Amino acid sequence: MIGLGSMIGAGVFAVFAPASAAAGTGLLLSLAIAGVVAYCNARSSAVLAAQYPVSGGTYVYGRERLGPWWGFTAGWGFVIGKTASCAAMALTVAAYVAPEFARPVAAAAVLALTVVNYFGITKTAGLARVLLAVALVSIGAVLVAVFGGGQVDAGSLGGGWTGGVTGVLQAAGLLFFAFAGYARIATMGEEVRDPGRTIPRAISVALAAALVLYAVVAVGLLLVLGPEALARSRAPLADAVRAGGMDWLAPAARIGAAVAGLGALLALITGIGRTTLAMARNHDLPGWMAGVHPRRQVPHHAESVLAVVVCVLVLTLDLRGAIGFSSFGVLVYYAIANASAFTLPAGLRRMPRWLPVLGLGGCLLLAATLPWQSVLAGVLVFAVGLGGRAVVRARRA
């Protein structure tokens, strides 16, 4: 529920318009490419999570399989990129709920969901289940309007490859942002029963379900709006409902976007807190951030700091353009996951050796073809993190 809720919240309501602007009707090919890369990453993550069932995800896998510097690179990219994603999701929710008070409402949403996380992973999964159910009902209503309104145009699926190969790859990189929800599952290895069995199954089920839903929604949006109108739309699902002639269902899109955004924000806070915990335990972040509540068994220090940082961001900055930067960080994160899985011995890898190689190459290719501003910002932030770690280690030595 945490993984699927995160993927649906990020993808259905936020990614299709910029992806269509890059690829036109090549959006469907971009979706397939993103799905293949995500599948490779999911298999690698599942195998590694079963082998290392502790909090931290690829930060831990990179440290164990490749060395401390690679682990730090993965953890730094995840924490920084997903912190920006938290702010973007909170602002998106507020824009649908109360656009005139967007920043205060966004900060309130962050604080409220941090409190939910404070009460433990069972409460988190329970709320994620409710939010996901509401989002799926809303999306179902939208699809009824899209496919039942009689306004579909099959010709919209032909032509429109305005971005060429580069545009298709760039769109795949943006769409990959929406598939990253299964990372939240792998970061919580210490808090689920039988992680060696539970985590791989949860990753596979969440990814397959999200890919099917994305494909249905993408086809519907292209049939009703066409690639050009879809690229211009700020609220694609709501515009598709109106174009289908069922305006009375338009509020379903707005409600669904707000609820799914809350689900994604909930999962983001959960995953970042666990990765921060793992990095603090290894002194890659301040040690006091490794504090775990004695009864709730949650990283309350890390999540409290995260809440404060995200609230400052939503009150002072406009982070809607952070999706590209976040995609860059996530792709680097999964590139390291694939490289880590490649080093496992055959008895533990339990998948063809070419699979993590394909995932590694796909991640690097999609990261390189993102908008240049996102690539430049990502490289600079990674340089700051790695340089800071080098200075701290030199002083300690």
Rank of each mutant, 00 (worst) to 15 (best):
D284V: 03
T316R: 04
F328V: 00
H300C: 09
V305C: 03
A258W: 02
L266K: 12
V330G: 04
G287R: 11
R242E: 08
Y334W: 11
W248S: 13
R274K: 10
A240W: 02
A322I: 13
H300I: 11
A264V: 12
A307W: 05
R320N: 10
G329S: 10
Y334P: 05
V310C: 12
R320A: 07
A243G: 14
S326M: 12
D239S: 12
S304K: 14
V259W: 00
M289F: 10
Q297K: 13
L268Q: 07
A253P: 13
T316H: 04
V259F: 00
A322F: 04
M246V: 09
A258P: 07
G245F: 02
Y333M: 14
R295Q: 13
H301T: 08
H293V: 08
A267E: 11
S327E: 13
A307L: 10
A253T: 14
A290R: 08
G273H: 09
I272G: 06
P294W: 10
A264G: 11
G273S: 15
G321C: 04
N282Y: 08
G271L: 03
V314L: 01
L319K: 13
H301A: 13
L313W: 01
L265T: 13
I336T: 08
Q297C: 01
T316G: 03
A243Y: 07
P286K: 02
A280Q: 13
A243E: 07
L277T: 11
G244M: 02
A264N: 07
M246P: 02
G256Q: 08
A260T: 07
G256N: 14
A307G: 14
R281W: 04
T275R: 10
V305R: 04
A278F: 04
A240L: 05
R242S: 06
R281P: 09
L285G: 09
R295M: 08
Y333R: 11
Q297W: 02
S340P: 06
V298H: 00
A240C: 07
G273F: 06
S304C: 09
T270M: 13
S340E: 09
T270N: 15
P251N: 03
